[in-house]
Design a protein around this nucleic acid. Structure first.
Length: 272
DNA sequence: ATAGCGCCCTGGTGGC
DNA sequence: TGCCACCAGGGCGCTA
């Protein structure tokens, strides 16, 4: 499940395609196209060159030479891969971009949740909160945004309008490092808890970016390489395993329909 | 306005 | 062994 560090890793691995041009676009499944027909997408992309690639939250933004932007969201199992045309698999490839250097850029996605945007930007893009690794994200972001709110802190962290780019893995890992229970109401967090949480978010994301992301089941960069952060995870997908800090068994609970992993000893519901 | 929830998908898993 | 129910989950869009 690609989150900020995985999309950042993908972005960096796509550096070789900057300056390349799209000779042809082959759409095998239009399901992934947001608010546009295959014809519109194909004609709009064909002949355009890649000017720049950046990232906003979990969105990858591919800027074309005519100022249009193709946005990609991988959701759960989406991949953007680069290679020789014969390297593309037979199954789950939805769009093939034939480049002017003979290489192929392709979008594949087994669960078909991922989307390509070009005609309209994703609605959530304009609503995104601050980039957590930027100077726009400060302890004040947490202080002001959590004030008088009853929402569980885990739900708050997953809300992309609050912070851009956190998903289930890094929200759980950040809460563990900060010693905060996922169900704790945000308005009740102490100054110390908020400070620890702010620090934890930055540290976890920084370390994950340096490790080229987490490959739990699906993530690969544009060359198919997995991430290395999985072995560093403290709680995510470690249910019933001993906490690395206190040896208590890691537990799970549901928060806003999502599974949360936490240590009941290191992350007391009553706060600390 | 805002919070909460169902839905989309398919491969992998666990139970019988 | 085979089958099947269930689970994973980000964001969108609808409802209360």
């Amino acid at each position: 499940m690609p989150e900020l560090p995985e999309v950042e890793t993908l972005k960096r691995s796509l550096t070789p395609v900057i300056g390349r041009c799209f000779q042809q676009v082959e759409i095998l499944s239009e399901h992934c196209l947001y608010h546009m027909t295959p014809e519109f997408f194909r004609e709009r992309i064909r002949g355009r060159c890649i000017h720049r690639i950046d990232r906003r939250g979990k969105y990858l933004r591919i800027h074309l030479d005519d100022a249009a932007v193709m946005t990609v969201h991988l959701r759960m199992t989406g991949r953007l891969r680069l290679g020789a045309p014969e390297e593309a698999p037979d199954k789950h490839v939805h769009v093939k971009f034939w480049l002017d250097d003979g290489n192929l850029l392709w979008f594949q996605d087994t669960r078909k949740f991922g989307r390509l945007y070009l005609k309209d930007d994703p609605p959530g893009l304009a609503l995104l909160g601050p980039e957590p690794m930027s100077d726009d994200f400060t302890p004040r972001t947490l202080e002001l945004g959590m004030k008088n709110k009853k929402q569980p802190v885990k739900s708050w962290l997953l809300d992309q309008r609050r912070i851009a780019g956190l998903g289930n893995i890094y929200a759980d890992e950040s809460l563990f490092r900060a010693g905060v229970h996922p169900l704790r109401p945000v308005g009740l967090l102490t100054d110390g808890e908020r400070q620890r949480l702010w620090t934890a978010i930055r540290q976890v994301l920084q370390e994950a970016i340096e490790a080229c992301g987490t490959t739990f089941s699906d993530f690969q960069d544009s060359y198919g390489r997995p991430g290395n952060f999985g072995q560093t995870l403290d709680v995510y997908q470690r249910k019933h395993q001993p906490c690395r800090r206190c040896q208590a068994a890691v537990e799970t609970c549901k928060v806003g329909g999502r599974t949360s992993h936490y240590c009941p000893n290191c992350q007391p519901l009553g706060g600390s």
